[in-house]
């Protein structure tokens, strides 16, 4: 595209960014407020950061959020990569309908995904209850008769909605790959395991990385699906905040928002600086 942006265009961009960031900066500013208010500035203090560390409810939910997002990202990235390779090797006739099913969690409204998983889990737990009662009557060993939704179901839900995003970003990389490379490797004596590790994996690595990033973002940002699948024993940060908005939101939320924002900012800065440096290296090598 040609490079000429008028002053008005730039101003418009700036306004959009102000719109996007004003609420976030307000949260950050008021996390240092001495008073409880989110509106009136009463002086600088770090009071809420101290209180945050002692707030078990919030800290526990931050821990749950990070744990479920990390676990779901790792599992979904591995499973999604293998699935994408499998899809790639399939005949078109088999692949197309399977990919349609794969797209369902991405296309569906979050609430439908959440509700449908919730119904499934409840139905399964009911069946499990009668099965366990029957099994225990055999007297071999005891199974728990009452299962409830909790961290396990939350993790299953997160993995389920993350895998399609991994496949979505790994798939194109596979299609771009020169198929002869794999055949060549195997002609030269690679087993297909070696072909996978030495040829396919390096080729699709950028896709895997961006898929993992997307999956993690989706997990961190999710509220609706977690809300329906976490039951009452596990609570993500979003669920805790939602619970608070019904009463009064405590200002510790501002503090945790600030900490999250700064962490993400630093992470993204590192990633981008590294990418930029690699690009520059590549360019100097080419020239």
């Amino acid at each position: 595209m040609s490079k000429n942006n008028s002053f008005l265009n730039r101003l418009f961009m700036v306004l959009v960014f102000v719109f996007l960031y004003a609420p976030i900066f307000l949260l950050i500013i008021f996390s240092f407020n001495a008073g409880k208010s989110n509106v009136v500035w009463q002086g600088f203090s770090l009071e809420w950061y101290g209180k945050l560390l002692n707030n078990r409810l919030i800290m526990q939910s931050v821990y749950t959020t990070l744990l479920v997002s990390l676990l779901a990202t790792v599992i979904a990235t591995i499973a999604g990569t293998f699935a994408a390779i499998g899809f790639f090797a399939m005949r078109r006739k088999v692949r197309e309908p399977l990919l349609t099913v794969n797209n369902i969690p991405m296309m569906n409204a979050d609430i439908v995904t959440g509700v449908s998983l919730c119904l499934l889990f409840v139905a399964f737990f009911n069946c499990w209850g009668s099965f366990a009662a029957w099994f225990n009557s055999l007297g071999l060993f005891r199974l728990p008769t009452r299962l409830t939704m909790g961290f396990g179901t939350l993790l299953i839900a997160h993995i389920t909605f993350n895998i399609p995003y991994v496949i979505l970003s790994v798939g194109p990389k596979l299609r771009q790959m020169d198929k002869n490379l794999v055949d060549a490797a195997m002609d030269l004596g690679c087993t297909w395991m070696q072909a996978f590790w030495k040829v396919i994996l390096p080729e699709i690595k950028p896709g895997i990385v961006s898929g993992a990033l997307t999956a993690f973002t989706m997990s961190i940002d999710d509220f609706v699906i977690s809300y329906f699948t976490a039951g009452s024993s596990a609570s993500t940060l979003a669920m805790t905040i939602y619970g608070m908005t019904k009463k009064r939101v405590s200002p510790e939320i501002n503090a945790i928002s600030t900490l999250l924002f700064v962490t993400v900012l630093i992470l993204l800065a590192i990633i981008n600086i590294r990418e930029a440096r690699q690009e520059r290296l590549r360019q100097t090598r080419l020239s």
């Binding site: 390779i85 790639f88 090797a89 969690p105 499934l120 839900a157 072909a195």
Partner: peptide
């Protein structure tokens, strides 16, 4: 090689059947 690789999808197809298709059937 193609057929062997396509077997990699089997676990995910089972996963989809359990956690994508079955929940929607439950809704219906």
């Amino acid at each position: 090689m193609k057929n062997k690789l396509s077997r990699l999808t089997i676990p995910y197809v089972i996963w989809m059947a359990l956690f994508v298709v079955a929940p929607i059937i439950m809704v219906v």
